[in-house]
Design a protein around this nucleic acid. Structure first.
Length: 291
DNA sequence: ATGGGTACCTGTCTGC
DNA sequence: TGCAGACAGGTACCCA
């Protein structure tokens, strides 16, 4: 999927287009990971607020909009049951959001169309691990249930080396698995976890609790550098991902280890290795990364 | 509380 | 060419 950089790039390219737009109709395709959780018709007439990101989730606030246009056209006025809330969206492993004025007819992998007065937001997701879920508020279920287990944002100033060190102290699991778990710090998925650990010079098999304070400092710097650079480059496009205007990311061209099994390390010339951790591929340089 | 495995679903690639 | 099997960016849930 879309890891944090891809979700952030999606948010940034969409936010300006959606804010203030009024929802006109909704089309649902095949079921996604979780049901929408409301009757689609109650969304019609609601107005979008500022698109936000939390971890790899996107939150689109929607509130009743009593514009003069709606008042004069009862069929478009918010229904009596309309109330503020929002849509919590996740791109799963293969999802992407695209915004366009006149999208082509939906294909077999186009599962949600949200048609606003300024264009159509379409979720395309071949594997259907993604989701779009209605929630009354971020701090109420079902959104709160999905967000409550999330750790700190990588750029949150509360995430210090000391805080990271303390959080890792109780984990015997390999550092790569702990990074990806998302309950300490969010955003590092399978690609970036490998890249971050390469940058920090840490062997991905190292038990998390054996990472000392000094190495936590390096890990934190690497985490922020790698994610910031990936956002700058529009994320990584392996096969499915594009930003909301259809533009590919190019971070994969800068990857030091991910997807490079058997190729030479760009830093030292050793061969990059692939191992499996928690049923996921991990790539690392056995010379640059130490236990 | 932590850790490991499974499940969800579909497309693509590899090797026989 | 056909087919089986492995693999793919995530994460909730179950059980030990």
């Amino acid at each position: 999927m879309p890891e944090l950089p891809e979700v952030e790039v999606t948010r940034a390219t969409l936010a300006g287009r959606l804010c203030g737009a009024t929802l006109r109709w909704v089309r649902l395709g095949k079921p996604l990971r979780w049901p929408l959780g409301c009757e689609p018709s109650i969304l019609v007439g609601l107005r979008a607020g500022e698109l936000q990101r939390r971890g790899k989730y996107l939150w689109l606030p929607l509130a009743p909009a009593a514009t003069p246009c709606d008042v004069h056209d009862p069929s478009r006025a918010p229904s009596a049951t309309a109330h503020a809330g929002g849509l919590l969206m996740h791109l799963g492993m293969s999802g992407s959001l695209n915004f366009s004025l006149a999208p082509p007819p939906p294909g077999p992998h186009d599962h949600v169309d949200l048609a606003f007065d300024q264009g159509v937001l379409r979720l395309t997701d071949p594997r259907r691990f993604g989701a779009v879920v209605w929630s009354d508020a971020l701090h109420r279920p079902p959104a709160s249930r999905l967000l409550e287990r999330l750790g700190l944002e990588p750029f949150d100033p509360r995430l210090t080396a000391q805080a990271l060190h303390q959080a890792l102290a109780s984990r015997r699991t390999p550092i790569k698995v702990a990074l990806m778990a998302g309950d300490i710090v969010v955003g590092a998925g399978n690609i970036y976890a490998s890249e971050i650990l390469f940058q920090a010079g840490i062997d991905p098999r190292t038990p998390a609790q054996r990472i000392g304070l000094r190495r936590c400092e390096r890990l934190l710097v690497a985490l922020r550098q790698v994610l910031a650079r990936a956002i700058e480059l529009g994320g990584s496009t392996l096969r499915d991902f594009h930003d909301a205007h259809g533009v590919d990311g190019v971070f994969q061209d800068e990857a030091q280890v991910y997807g490079r099994e058997g190729q030479v390390c760009r830093r030292c010339g050793a061969r990059v290795r692939r191992i499996v951790q928690a049923q996921r591929s991990t790539f690392y340089c056995p010379a640059c990364q130490r236990r």
